[in-house]
Amino acid sequence: MRTAATILRKDLRVELRTLETVPSMWLLAITTFVIFHFGLGRDTLRGQLAAGVLTVTLLFAGMLAINRLFVAEREQGGFDAFLLAPVDRTAMFFAKTGALFLFLVATEVVALPAFALLLAPPSLGSSLPAVLLFLALADLGVAVIGTFVSAIAVHTRARDLIGPILGLPLLLPALIATARGLAPLLVPGAGGSPPAKWLAVLALYDLVNALLAVGLFDFLLEE
């Protein structure tokens, strides 16, 4: 865990210094809201439509981070340096999942208010905690699968292509659960309780994938 913290701190420091990933995610998210406004011809969205637009936007913004997650390790020898050290290799997985999770949260800090301002129906206050809970679980799922997919894609020639085409189908169950679960929360005057069924599905999906990824991640690091 100490190793994971070391790597995570290094990643956050690089991100703070270069501002490569998170600002791009902000821009992509807001631009996508504008696109949906024109594409759907709606000024405000509610229910399933609002949930779908929000989920899809965040997923696509997340794809940017997924594509970049391991690029520095690959191009600047981070993998070799890490493999030369006498440390547990799963630490890399935890560190990268943590970094991706934080990038997603940082994106939502800007994207969620932007969504509320631009597209959401008025008076959503009461369901906000439930929405945040859903997004946190969704972020976890995206972080786990994204890290896994990114570690595969970074060693391929066409990594910008392999990442999304591999990641999107794998993330579909999480997307379904999030979009369906958020839908009843994004109507005016919605109650505060999230649909338990979709929370459970999302949590279970996160758990299964985390176990698989932890079990298999070492094979992706080995030369």
Partner: peptide, 10 residues
């Protein structure tokens, strides 16, 4: 080796 194994932005 041939690669410095150093992060360029740090």
């Amino acid at each position: 080796g041939h690669e410095p194994l150093l992060y360029r932005d740090l």
